[in-house]
Amino acid sequence: MIAYYMCFGLFFVGLYGVITRRNLVKIAISLSIMEISTFLFFALIGYIDNGVAPIVNPADPDKIYVDPLPQTLVLTAIVIGLATTALLMAVIIRLYRKYKTFDIREINELRG
């Protein structure tokens, strides 16, 4: 059970980073930490005690396998996470070009 709580701990570590950090790249890293915590959670809920990797062995069909569905979901989510992180980094590089800084306090044209 402790592992599930640690997933949540990791999620809040990421959330703390997003809220308190001032550097754009550090915010992106914190978002990635949150992302990883959700993936870890998915990997954990598919685990079954004494289960083996779900590769079918025709000789021994009665083995206990872990649940393969969350693993496929995590793979899909990782692909999506790759795309979002890449886009976020591209926007950060462009922002650095325009403002010459990574400090979020100086990037405040939009308000009201």
Binding site: V18, L31, S37, V91, N108
Partner: peptide, 17 residues
């Protein structure tokens, strides 16, 4: 545009998780 997109991405990412 870039600033709006950055804000949108951070909050949208939070929503996705």
């Amino acid at each position: 545009e870039l600033e709006a997109s950055f804000k949108y991405q951070v909050l949208g990412g939070l929503a996705s998780f």
